[in-house]
Design a protein around this nucleic acid. Sequence first.
DNA 1: CAGATTTGACCGGC
DNA 2: GCCGGTCAAATCTG
Length: 321
Amino acid sequence: MEGKKDMLNWEQKTLVSELISGLEAAKKLQARLGEPSSLPPSSSSRAAEMNEILMKQILSSYEKSLAIVNWSSAPPVQLILKAGSIAPVTLIPESPVSINGSPRSEDFLDGRGSSNTHRQNHLFNSKKRKMLPKWTEKVRMSPERGLEGPHQDDVYSWRKYGQKDILGAKFPRSYYRCTHRSTQNCWATKQVQRSDSDSTVFEVTYRGTHTCSRATAAAPPPPASPEKQDTITKPPIAQKPNDLLESLKTSLTVRTEGLDEGEDVFSLFPNTPPFYDYGTPNDYFGGLMESSPIFDVVDWFNPTVEINPEFPTFLPDSIYY
DNA sequence: CAGATTTGACCGGC
DNA sequence: GCCGGTCAAATCTG
């Protein structure tokens, strides 16, 4: 009982902290956006970069908060993000924490003869894993604007650890986990499944939030996966819209300029980026597009866009119990 | 050579 | 027994 209380306190603390953080970042961003571009052209890109950082920070804070809310409260939360040019994306938190876990109950040594230590470790982690908050995001891709959704998480590096054909599904499901699982004990995982009804939609199910300090994850490594077209991924921050479009048409794989080709599939895996890390998306699209074709998030907070400039509403207003 | 992906096998839940 | 999720050896990539 006491424990629960402590937990709540911790959660509340974290929640408040995250919200405050997001709020402050938002204020700054709002101020920046509101400011007439008194900046010299030269610093405009830097300004854009800064905005990007702030934006990521905001999203991160809110996502964490959401995760916490979802995790600590049973009522399902449906977050629907709507943004002018962006297609609606749905966050569908699944089982908050109901499932008590033990994927692989008490097994000390499986058929594969792994070491005991590993097994026990695994056991522990498995249980823990099931306790992690879980939610699903539907990300739609449209040739016109590329990927649409809150995938600000290319910043994270994911490592694919499996792929399975799912009964009744046209496309296989891919399993990813944070690259820093072992080094930083980060248990964030995600599953990516292409919708069979609408192949432009990808259902990304996340479990657990990142606890790794992406500081080390830095480098925008195209964690992508040169796998088959199945394992979709969203273009990191792709390059030319044309290429993107092309890729989308073909197999939803996108190449990143800097990368030597290879099928750099994008990774649509948003999560909760502690902070910004990538380069400046805007640079990629230069004047080709007004805003990132894939990552319009910035617009979500841009007063000039159709959406409510007051991002806070982006949360409360869109959460339904 | 280190790190990532592929892929078949294994495991627990239903 | 089937199915989804995960593991880990083999393989690939830069």
